[in-house]
Amino acid sequence: MVDYLWNTQSPLQKALVPGRHGAAGAHVGVTLNEVRDIVLVQVMARRGKAADAAKAAKKLFGIEAPATPKAVTGKTATLIWSGPDQFTVIAPRTDEASQLAAMVQVFAGSASLSDQSDGRCLIRVSGPRGRDAIAKFSSLDLHDLAFPVGAAANTSVDHTAVNLWREANGADGHPVYNMLVFTSFADSLWHTVVDSSLEYGVEAASARAA
């Protein structure tokens, strides 16, 4: 019998090379982070139970689940709209089993849950030129008026489904965008993002979700 060693690794194990890339100089235009150790659950309200699911989300997370393409951040989790009567819950991984158990309990009967924690890869794009880099491969209008803090979108990048949302501006005052992508497409998307960012100077790293 073969003994398997289940070696868990990042989908960006090969693609992500930490450090400085692209345009030389002291100035970093785009900061790219792979955000690791997340708990990610897709919540889809059952037929006729959309209001109950929203109530359950409010009870567990203390925030209103988004009914339009928005990302709402509470104390313990961020809820990202992902379609009519469905949203994605993302939280830093603390104790995954109890985090999931709490959701199973509160959404029982009102929504179907699907654990995507290891199914998606989260890439965070920030820095003064982050928006310019994304604009090269996304057809979304990312202007402050069209895509302000808290805006979210399900969209296609390079024929790949991506959940994109904008969180609060970084400490440098520049926008911060999050991109959720299927793990098997993460490598490809990462290269797209890096290639778009090279001319601005890139700082790449892998970080734990906080």
């Binding site: 889809m44 309200a45 037929r47 006729g48 959309a50 009519p84 009567d85």
Partner: peptide
């Protein structure tokens, strides 16, 4: 417009 049955709010 949304096709009938889209989302969970309305019955088909």
């Amino acid at each position: 417009t949304a096709a009938p049955g889209v989302g969970a709010a309305k019955p088909v």
